[in-house]
Simulated scan of single mutants.
Amino acid sequence: MTDAPDRPTVLTAADGDVWRITLDRPETGNPVTPALAADLAAALAARPEQSRVVLLLANGPRFCVGGDIGSFAGASNPGDFVGRLASDWHQVIRALLSCPVPVVAGVQGAVAGAGVGLIGACDLVVCARTTKIRPAYGAIGFTPDGGTSWALSRALGAPRALDLLLSNGSLTAAEAHLTGLVARLVEDEDLQATAEQLATRIAAGPIRTMVRTRALVRQAATRTLEEQLDDEAQLIAESASDPEGREGVRAFVEKRAPDFRNAR
């Protein structure tokens, strides 16, 4: 399967404080291809400096069906092709994990293969109720990539992650919400509006503080309490010195809403 060279696989738009990135191969389920990896990496790199949140969405009934298996079958050297694609895709995952602003995603329909790792790299995921999440690697004899094993192990724990991966199982949206793989569960027709509202709400908050908080939460599972306490002390001191922290305290004392957007 070949992407039309004159048609990007993602659409981007600045919507106030929100940098919207939309996967745009609805006719094929937004599969992970070399073109998508390149376009998504470029879209993240092109984020306007003034934007305060990234909102990741997808056109069509399916969010992301994972790798384009047809291209795997057609490759003269499958190991080389898949390895290069995984390497390129992992740069996207790293860009999301290190994004200087929070990342919100709205997902629907199907999330499979590397698409699972994609949502796992986002900070807040809003999920439509009828969504199905299926790693699907075992069905084609592959091991996980794209951070999928990390995201599933972090959310489900090792035993349940292995059960899902080794049995070629799937999760309903309700199960994904219950285990913490996704943050919010909404009716299908409310998905986009809810994701947009959440992104706008997050954008009004203390963005640099949120990024520090994200780091603390992600590190918590692999660190001792003593290590976590040390980092908490350091980061709360940084936040108190930051213009965001100063504005938050000042607004509290003055009994008004804080203006974090202009806290520079």
Rank of each mutant, 00 (worst) to 15 (best):
A4G: 00
P8A: 15
V10M: 02
A14T: 14
D15W: 13
V18E: 01
P26G: 06
E27G: 11
T28Q: 11
N30G: 07
P31R: 09
V32R: 08
A41L: 11
P48K: 10
R52N: 00
P61N: 11
I69S: 08
G70W: 05
A75G: 04
S76P: 00
P78A: 14
G79R: 11
S87K: 15
W89G: 00
W89N: 00
Q91T: 14
I93S: 06
L96D: 07
S98V: 12
S98A: 15
C99R: 06
P100W: 04
V101E: 09
V103P: 01
G106Q: 04
G109R: 03
A114T: 11
G115A: 11
G117F: 09
G120A: 08
V125G: 08
V125H: 04
T130D: 14
T131D: 00
I133N: 03
I133G: 07
P135K: 07
I140W: 03
T143W: 14
P144S: 03
T148I: 01
S149D: 12
L152N: 05
R154L: 04
R160C: 01
L171E: 03
L171T: 01
A173T: 04
E175F: 06
H177Y: 09
L181I: 03
L185I: 02
D188Q: 03
Q192R: 15
R201D: 12
I202L: 08
A203F: 09
I207L: 11
V211G: 01
A220N: 08
T222R: 13
E226N: 07
A233L: 13
I236N: 08
S241I: 00
R246A: 12
R246E: 10
E254Q: 14
E254I: 05
K255W: 01
A257C: 11
R261T: 12
A263T: 08
R264H: 14
